[in-house]
């Protein structure tokens, strides 16, 4: 008995499973009629394949498509972020210019509108210091107290307060046995 044509079609597509696969192959080996039917099916696939898109056409379409998608989708993704999310990028030059501009405006304000002591005293509390002999003390005049300025007792008590254990011996005198 010859093979059902649906089986041949599946055989052609490599979709037949065992045991049908080996049974079909075996039958085809000795049945010329079925081989001819299989060839006919192959012929249909072959003729359909004549209308295949050439690979280079697909490749160029893929490149074109990617370009458009990148522009469209990434363009959307890269839409202007809200002001607070926008990164502020500034070169050193423009930063200096901006700072200088601020200074000019600030100083310019004083120059143009002037300042009266009354106005400033309201903002900045005035404080004047008279520099005379009463409240100026020269640093060089301050006496520095060296180690000689302290008594042995003072030194020992200082060291004791810092937690040092001081053992004193006097040169040339033997302790009493």
């Amino acid at each position: 008995m010859c093979i059902d044509e649906a089986l041949l079609s599946s055989y052609l597509d490599g979709e037949l499973e065992e045991p049908y696969l080996s049974q079909t192959a075996e039958h085809l080996a000795h049945c010329a009629a079925c081989r001819a039917r299989l060839e006919r099916l192959k012929g249909i696939s072959a003729i359909l394949a004549k209308d295949e898109l050439p690979q280079e056409e697909i490749d160029s379409a893929r490149e074109r498509g990617l370009e458009v998608l990148e522009r469209k989708l990434l363009g959307q993704e890269g839409r202007k972020p809200g002001f607070f999310r926008r990164r502020i990028e500034m070169g050193l030059g423009s930063m200096i210019t901006a700072a200088a501009g601020l200074v000019v405006v600030f100083i310019g304000g004083f120059v143009l509108f002037g300042t009266s002591p009354e106005q400033t005293s309201e903002i900045i509390p005035s404080y004047t210091v008279q520099a005379d002999s009463q409240n100026v003390r020269f640093v060089s005049d301050q006496e520095t107290r060296g180690l000689d300025g302290y008594s042995l007792e003072e030194i020992l008590s200082y060291l004791d307060s810092k937690g040092y254990n001081v053992d004193i011996s006097i040169k040339g005198i033997q302790p009493i046995e």
Partner: peptide, 16 residues
């Protein structure tokens, strides 16, 4: 799918 592929091939065979 198997049945449809087969039927389509049969029809194509007839028309071609």
């Amino acid at each position: 799918v198997k049945i449809r592929v087969h039927r389509a091939r049969k029809k194509l065979e007839e028309s071609l």
